[in-house]
Design a protein around this nucleic acid. Structure first.
Lengths: 343, 343
DNA sequence: ATTAGCACTCTCCAGCGATGAGTGCTAACT
DNA sequence: AGTTAGCACTCATCGCTGGAGAGTGCTAAT
């Protein structure tokens, strides 16, 4: 009876969580007894709350404030108490309307998706661009810059374009570069970037490359200029979290903004989601990222056909409106998948 | 004597400004008399300060605080009091070190420049990417997406790549698209994007296009997919301004972050700088952008040869260290110009 | 023209008590 | 045995107060 959660315990915990989500104020026994039709006196609820606190689901900021749900409570809530509503009609329309991508740059589509997620959820939107490795190579071109510097442009099957400035180890004429580009475009057609890497290394070791100087140079150049595998991150709507009462404290706010400025950690976190298709939820300290404590992350992967392309989601306070945001993220991921789909 | 600034007036104003720049506290007559070797009693200085206030160079937050410089004062300071120091040796090294661009994407170079500006100045770095119109067309390619959607990729002479998704008005096969790309690449070679626009319109009205259905389609497709002329903005180091005491107020901070989230206004402001080569300085309300009052902007244009490419700069509080930041912006702009130079 | 002196203003801060929300415990009730 | 009413207790919050300190403006003396 002490370690197992009774039905009533669950009901009261749920009420507390939902109240806290909507008010951001520690919730007291009286509130629960009045506002949620449980027909129990505050005293009874106090008893239950004391148990819940002992079990680690609640915490009290100080003796005479109400109780606040812990990360553990949100986890339980998300896993088994919460009934995910279907997405609202208005929201669905809004997302659809956004997804008219004609005339937009591919990168901008993702950026705007991020912005849309933030404005519709009133939290922060995050979209990670697809990792490069799994994408299929389509076209490469080299442009001569000053000196020996060369601009390499890789076009991938899904429409993203990667470019990079490299230093060649010999002077190369423009026509050399065009020829190299044409040759490599042909040679690498249809491979994924990961395979391209592989193929180049193999070829460089081959007989042919040893005798054909130009070929060797072309291969070397392409090796240098292969796009890096890091994905970009669009984080939009940061100002939304400025309105949340829990971040009214200036120090807290600084900490968060600092954390988001160097996106590295967040990228890692999102990478973890890549391997688990569908909705993923990190609550508060579960992310194991210090500065993100107090924040939750709801993500979903977007994909075309079998290929997982990337991750998108919403970052909000741990007390975010899971019931509303989860279907939004889910629906958006599906729609983005469809929109980016190739035939 | 009343409207014209005496030498002593200037000296004292300069002292006040410099003190305020370093302390962010309203400065009193005693401070000036003690810390700056003017050999005048506080009372004398008070008289001068009263004059300066009447002339609009100083303001007092309330009766018993010291005085604070107005935008007008900073303008005078920047225009005629300030002696711009040569750039520091350490700073020069730091900027140089950053400018090793091998192996980086072109866009990233600008983004990192922005970041570098922010970290070296301790304010915010801004870099606007070049406008598209003046750039020279190099290559276009069309990729078939689902349905009638087509991905158009424009490569420009300076290495930037623009892409856009458009809806074709007929089903086009992959080979059609490749052919169109090749034809247009040939046809538009060497023109600026502005000229490309022109040329396409002309050609669409020509005899040839009227009879060659495929040509007409190709032209139409390229017209739709021409890159937009808006330049992107990289704003980095926003968290730096969180540390400034004048923005300790949460409301003020929200306002600023909101303003930066929609970059439109700022782009307009930077565009104004494009036409005036070299260093430009906007102080506080001079920018005529409400939310930017209290902030100053120091910009410089970067260019290759004759072509102005874009604008970069630093945004900080009006009381920013002009003497230090101006040479930093200047030097960075020159270096970026050199680095992006084509041969 | 400059300065010393002084009264005055206004912010900032610490201390104070009142208020009220919420708890935990005990004893009575069903 | 579970539930509830009652009550003493804790603690954050708020408004008020008075003192300290910084800085000013004015006047009169140098």
């Amino acid at each position: 009876m002490r370690d197992e959660l009774s039905d009533r315990g669950k009901q009261i915990l749920e009420a507390i969580i939902e109240d806290y989500i909507s008010t951001a104020e520690p919730v007291g026994s009286r509130t629960i007894s009045r506002r949620y039709g449980l027909d129990l006196s505050p005293a009874t609820i106090r008893n239950v709350m004391a148990d819940l606190e002992e079990m680690g689901f609640l915490a009290s900021p100080h003796t005479s404030a109400g109780r606040v749900p812990t990360d553990k409570a949100y986890r339980l809530y998300v896993d088994s108490l919460l009934e995910v509503r279907a997405i609202g009609r208005g929201e669905r329309e809004q997302i659809k309307r956004h997804c008219d991508i004609r005339g937009k740059q591919v990168g901008d589509v993702l950026k705007e998706t991020s912005r849309m997620l933030s404005s519709i959820s009133h939290y922060m939107g995050v979209v990670a661009t697809p990792h490069v490795s799994a994408n299929v190579f389509r076209h490469v071109e080299f442009v001569r810059l000053g000196g020996r510097r060369v601009l390499a442009i890789f076009v991938l099957q899904n429409g993203t374009v990667q470019n990079k400035i490299v230093e060649a180890d010999a002077d190369l004429s423009s026509s050399d570069l065009v020829a190299m580009g044409n040759y490599l475009t042909e040679f690498l057609q249809g491979l994924t970037i990961a395979e391209v890497k592989q193929r180049i290394i193999e070829e460089m070791a081959s007989e042919k490359a040893r005798y054909d100087n130009m070929l060797a140079r072309a291969l070397d150049l392409s090796r240098l200029s292969l796009p890096d595998d890091d994905s970009e991150l669009f984080i939009e709507g940061q100002s939304n979290i400025l309105d949340l009462p829990e971040f009214a404290d200036v120090e807290r706010m600084k900490e968060i903004f600092r954390a988001f400025e160097q996106k590295g950690h967040l990228v890692q976190l999102l990478d973890r989601c890549l391997t688990a298709p569908g909705i993923n939820i990190f609550i508060g300290s579960e992310s194991r990222l210090g500065p993100l404590s107090g924040l939750s992350l709801i993500t979903s992967t977007y994909a075309t056909g079998k290929n997982t392309l990337g991750v998108l989601g919403v970052i909000g306070p741990t007390r975010m409106g899971y019931a509303k945001v989860i279907p939004i993220v889910d629906y958006t991921a599906k729609l983005v998948s469809r929109v980016l789909e190739l035939e």
